[in-house]
């Protein structure tokens, strides 16, 4: 049984270098940073110093087994933060987050890998870190290597990989151990067409096994082919929660552009 329950979630990132906005606080409202909702989202102390950024506020939703959620929203709307909270990396400041099921998240492809270690060593480390035994890891090793398609690069340090190769390896490891809940950030759309096709197929079989998928993306085709339900985040709040195609058309109507990458 996998399930996600989020209630009144709020997250504020602290800022410690005592930055003071270069914009005059009186006139800043006339000159807001494009779409970042600057003035309402920066938390200031009484001297006007910025001490935090409110990333999420009053976010509530529930996801049940087999649902595939597509997250949309402009840059800085809180998508990545929400994914990281669901992945259990950031504890919420406020509200509650209940996640039932084994979760795997791929939010930043540079994280969760030792760049000095080889691809093979990273398979071991990540496998152990997700609570698998050595035997289970050895069983999947060749399958992971084949999916990542790295050939002999699998025995070279990850720092020698291109961004695309890192992404393939990361995705291969993350999905190989059949998580109940898979959390993916938008970088997936950076892959080439062949990889996106492979990844989509893999996600389809995974969701067929009644897992939950949460995918943040700006790519219309990726969202439409993988997700059933859409969540639209705007300035750290949920603006819309509806079937994927409805959310996408409302999102485009409001003037946002989605990329139309072909599969």
């Amino acid at each position: 049984m996998s399930r996600i329950l989020v209630q009144q979630l709020a997250v504020t990132y602290p800022i410690f270098n005592r930055a003071r906005s270069s914009l005059d606080t009186q006139t800043a409202a006339l000159d807001p940073g494009e779409d970042f909702g600057g003035i309402q989202r920066l938390v200031r102390d009484k001297h006007g110093y910025i001490k935090g950024v409110r990333a999420l506020e009053d976010v509530s939703f529930e996801v049940n087994e087999g649902e595939r959620i597509g997250l949309v929203g402009a840059n800085g709307s809180g998508k990545t933060t929400l994914l990281q909270v669901l992945a259990g990396i950031y504890p919420p400041d406020n509200g509650c987050v209940l996640v039932d099921g084994r979760t795997t998240s791929l939010v930043n492809i540079n994280l969760g890998m030792r760049s000095e270690a080889t691809g093979n060593q990273n398979i071991t480390l990540r496998g152990l870190a997700s609570g698998r035994t050595r035997a289970e890891i050895e069983e999947r090793r060749s399958e992971i290597a084949a999916f990542a398609g790295l050939g002999e690069f699998i025995d070279l340090p990850v720092e020698t990989y291109s961004a695309g190769m890192r992404m393939r390896l990361n995705f291969a490891i993350a999905t190989a151990f059949e998580p109940d809940i898979l959390i993916l950030d938008e970088w997936l759309s950076a892959g080439d067409a062949k990889f996106r096709k492979l990844a989509s197929e893999r996600m389809a079989t995974f969701v067929g096994q009644a897992g939950i998928l949460v995918l943040a993306s700006h790519s219309q085709s990726l969202l439409l082919s993988n997700c059933t339900r859409g969540l639209w985040l705007h300035d750290g709040r949920i603006r819309m929660d509806a079937p994927m195609n409805e959310v996408l058309s409302a999102y485009e109507e409001s003037g946002h552009k989605l990329s139309l990458t072909r599969q």
Partner: peptide, 9 residues
């Protein structure tokens, strides 16, 4: 931090 920000260990 590479692991702390990637996996909930």
């Amino acid at each position: 931090h590479v692991w702390i920000k990637a996996m909930p260990l």
